[in-house]
């Protein structure tokens, strides 16, 4: 086995753990609120509102750790995406997931000290962390303080439009979670990546 790489510093692991936990609380309470049913309540409505609000606020503050952590520690480098040849790189990575991995091929972009993410991961993380999560935080804060929202936008409730955007992005985040969890099983062993995010060391293939 190759040498283990220390890729996930303590601050990042703490951020990730809080983020993951709050993400799950928000997901479960969010589903419970959106599909609330008097006959079958996943979580009692008023409890779900409180948990959702608290988890949302924690996640929003935790996001600041992510932002400042990336800026201050240089972790942001791992997210840098070069446009040149990007499509080819993405196709190469997709091709690996679709067929290469079954043929026993090696991953085209192995994890190194300088390359934590493959191009597909970069795109997915950039979209998630720098687009979807900020949208969720902004719309979430707006829904927490609805007096900030424009009440009427072309005869549509501003609160509804904000909630709609919050809901649509949450669906994509749910899909992200499914794929993120699944791809985490594609390390050197199905559980190695889960261990990595706890102990900080990446196990190369």
């Amino acid at each position: 086995m190759s040498e283990k790489l220390y890729l996930y510093p303590v601050w990042l692991r703490i951020w990730h753990a809080i983020n993951a936990l709050m993400f799950l609380v928000l997901l479960v309470t969010g589903v419970s609120l959106q599909y609330s049913n008097p006959d079958y309540q996943l979580i009692r409505f008023d409890y779900a509102v409180t948990y959702h609000n608290i988890a949302g606020i924690i996640l929003a503050f935790n996001y600041l750790i992510f932002l400042f952590g990336n800026i201050l520690t240089g972790n942001a480098v791992f997210y840098k995406l070069r446009r040149k040849g990007l499509v080819d790189k993405l196709l190469k990575q997709m091709n690996y997931y679709i067929s290469g991995t079954f043929k026993g091929e090696h991953t085209p972009f192995p994890v190194t000290k300088k390359r934590k993410f493959n191009p597909l991961q970069k795109v997915a993380y950039l979209a998630t962390m720098y687009m979807m999560i900020p949208v969720m935080i902004i719309t979430g804060v707006a829904l927490l303080f609805p007096e900030m929202i424009i009440m009427n936008v072309m005869n549509l409730s501003g609160i509804y439009l904000t909630a709609l955007l919050h809901g649509i992005v949450s669906i994509f985040l749910l899909i992200f979670l499914v794929i993120h969890l699944y791809f985490s099983t594609m390390g050197s062993s199905p559980t190695s990546n889960f261990k990595s995010i706890v102990n900080g060391y990446h196990e190369p293939h």
Partner: peptide, 30 residues
């Protein structure tokens, strides 16, 4: 939809179907 928003009461049928299909497809893919 037009005038008000009540969490849990406003359910957009298209969004519901879209989310179920998307979620189902991702599970199927996995």
């Amino acid at each position: 939809l037009n005038e008000t928003y009540v969490i849990g009461a406003n359910r957009n049928i298209y969004l519901n179907i879209f989310s179920i299909i998307l979620f189902g497809l991702s599970l199927l893919g996995v």
